[in-house]
Amino acid sequence: MSEKKIRIMVAKPGLDGHDRGARVLARCFRDAGFEVIYTGCHQTPEQIASAAIQEDVDVVGLSCLSGAHRYLFPAVAKLLKEQGADDITVVGGGIIPEQDFQLLYDAGLKAIFVPGATLDSIVEWVKTNIKPRD
């Protein structure tokens, strides 16, 4: 019998090893009924884009707490686009100053979650904005 599920990848690009937040989110997405692919720390944008395509996810959630989001997040979005996979939604989270938001939106990110964002609000955003694909 058919049942469509949201597939979401949680990934940590770059040298930042602080993965507590990413793991909590992965767990929280699981509890929301999503299928979560977690790829661990220290991933290059190339690895993340390639894994997202192999796994056919609806969303890639990037977490970065090191300050390198200005480079890393747009790099993932760009690689997906180059490989014809810009239908995969990219969102980001971490310690991201407000003045960087526009740069990230311009690069193709659809949402940014900063400290203080509740787990419920993040899940709600995904449920509202992402439909499992046909």
Binding site: K5, A26, R27, F29, R30, D31, A32, G33, F34, E35, V36, I37, Y38, T39, G40, A51, E55
Partner: peptide, 10 residues
């Protein structure tokens, strides 16, 4: 919940 963590890929 019907959810899953797929972590083999790590």
């Amino acid at each position: 919940t019907g959810g899953a963590i797929l972590g083999d890929r790590i």
